[in-house]
Every structure is written in structure tokens, then in C-alpha cells.
């Protein structure tokens, strides 16, 4: 019988702990496919964040490091400066990358570290049970914005790709989504390119992936994908924000 579909080689056999309908699984797969296609698993070192993907170190077959909350880009910098010929990536959520770790994110991008960052933006803190994230939308109800996010008291959501695009050093910044098949296909291209840039020594790449959190959004997986389409993409437009590659 012909095998028509299988797990990427650079994912381990560990069973993912993510909630049903969560798109972390898709993005893990896209990262693993990129690693497989570039044949770099043996020299890749990943850095996991604090957040829902904290246990990503169990899922990727390459060497993995678990970082403190928000510090993954600094940890990745330390790794990359020690082993410049290796491929180093971080996988971070919105609280990790855009709130507690924003300083590390901006500074690492500003230095143009030759690393790849996969940034999962699902507009909420998932692991701690659905609190407001720096990327939560105006009016979005969360555990810590029970009346909906109010710009006057809680500020406006942060657009990371746009923010980083003002810097000179980053090579490649793209925002993608994984809520539909065409979007997943585009996301795959972007993730692959972000790794390829690093392999070719081009510099800092960050892919922002609009992702879902059906559990904490209180939506079915299907409705969650619609939420991305109807609410998130209008505020977080998809596309390339910088491409010097």
C-alpha cells in the first residue's frame, strides 16, 4: 500500500498536548517540514518558550532548549553566537514574544541575528487559561478583560511585523495565517523561506502566524477559523512586511 501522507521526520512520536482544533499542530508540522526539506535536523537547535508551546521541546526531534518566559531570542542569540554554523529557531507565543519578551524580540531583530523566529499570534494567553494578550483585539473578552478590551485603559493591540519593519536589520518579516488551506500553503512557503534565509546566512527572519485558540476563545474550531478571517486579519493584515532576501 502506498504511503500518501506521513508525519515529518523531524517531529518525534510524542503525542501533542494541544487542545482539539488548536493550530499549534499545523505550525509544528510546517516547521518540521521546512527542517526536513532543507535537511538540517541534525544541526538545528530549537528554543521553546513559556506558554502553550512550552513543551515543544518534546515534539521536535532536533536538540531543544527551554527558555524562561520571553527570553527565547536572547537564548537563541547565545546559541547562535556559540554555534554560528548551526540553525537556530525560536517558537514563541504572543505573550512571550510581544509582552514580557518584547525587549529581547526588538533587540534581537535590531542586531539582525541570523536566526528564525516563529511567532504564534492567537490574541490570548492560552496556557494560563485565557487572559488578555498584547495582541488581543479591541472588545475581545478574556479572563482579564471581562468587559472586552478597552483601548482607553488597556491600550491597543500590538502589530509585531509592522513594529519590526521599522528596523534596518531584519531580512524577512511576513504575517501568515493557518485558518484555511490556501493560507496554510502560503504559511508553509513563508516558514520554509525563513529557515532558508538563515541557512544561506542572510539574517533575521520572523514569521507571524495568526493562530486559533478555540478553547479560550469559547468557539468551535470551525468558528475559530472564521474569527481569524473576520476579526483578526482585518486588524492584522497578511503579507510581507520586509523582504531583503
Amino acid at each position: 500500500m502506498a504511503v500518501v501522507f506521513q508525519k515529518p521526520k523531524s517531529l518525534t512520536d510524542a503525542v501533542l498536548h494541544y487542545c482539539p482544533g488548536c493550530t499549534h499542530g499545523i505550525v509544528h508540522r510546517l516547521v518540521a517540514e521546512a527542517i526536513d526539506e532543507l535537511g538540517i535536523e541534525g544541526r538545528t537547535i530549537g528554543v521553546a518558550p513559556v506558554g502553550c508551546s512550552v513543551m515543544a521541546y518534546d515534539y521536535f526531534g532536533c536538540d531543544m532548549i527551554e527558555a524562561a518566559h520571553g527570553r527565547a531570542p536572547a537564548v537563541a542569540t547565545g546559541v547562535k553566537r556559540s554555534m554560528p554554523d548551526n540553525v537556530v529557531f525560536t517558537y514563541q507565543g504572543d505573550g512571550d514574544l510581544a509582552s514580557i519578551g518584547l525587549c529581547e524580540t526588538v533587540s534581537t531583530a535590531c542586531r539582525g541575528e541570523n536566526i528564525t523566529i516563529i511567532f504564534i499570534n492567537n490574541a490570548i494567553y492560552g496556557m494560563t487559561g485565557g487572559q488578555m494578550a498584547p495582541t488581543s483585539l479591541i472588545g475581545q473578552v478574556t479572563q482579564t478583560s471581562p468587559y472586552g478590551r478597552d483601548a482607553a485603559t488597556q491600550g491597543m493591540p500590538i502589530r509585531v511585523c509592522e513594529l519590526l519593519s521599522t528596523l534596518e536589520a531584519p531580512v524577512y518579516l511576513e504575517r501568515v495565517a493557518v485558518n484555511s488551506v490556501p493560507h496554510v500553503r502560503q504559511a508553509k512557503k513563508a516558514v520554509l523561506k525563513a529557515f532558508k534565509n538563515q541557512v544561506e546566512g542572510k539574517g533575521f527572519s520572523l514569521i507571524e502566524v495568526l493562530s486559533t485558540c478555540p478553547t479560550n476563545w469559547g468557539l468551535t474550531p470551525e468558528k475559530a477559523c472564521q474569527f481569524v478571517e473576520e476579526k483578526m486579519i482585518p486588524f492584522y493584515p497578511l503579507g510581507v512586511f520586509k523582504d531583503r532576501a
Partner: peptide, 17 residues
Amino acid sequence: AESEIAAINMVYGAAST
């Protein structure tokens, strides 16, 4: 580094290798 926090985490990364 951009901060003491970043510096020690860079050390953490380099020490990991």
C-alpha cells in the same frame, strides 16, 4: 546585551551548547 536579563539568557544559550 540589551539588559542584564538578556545577557544572562544569552549565557544560558551559550552554556546549553
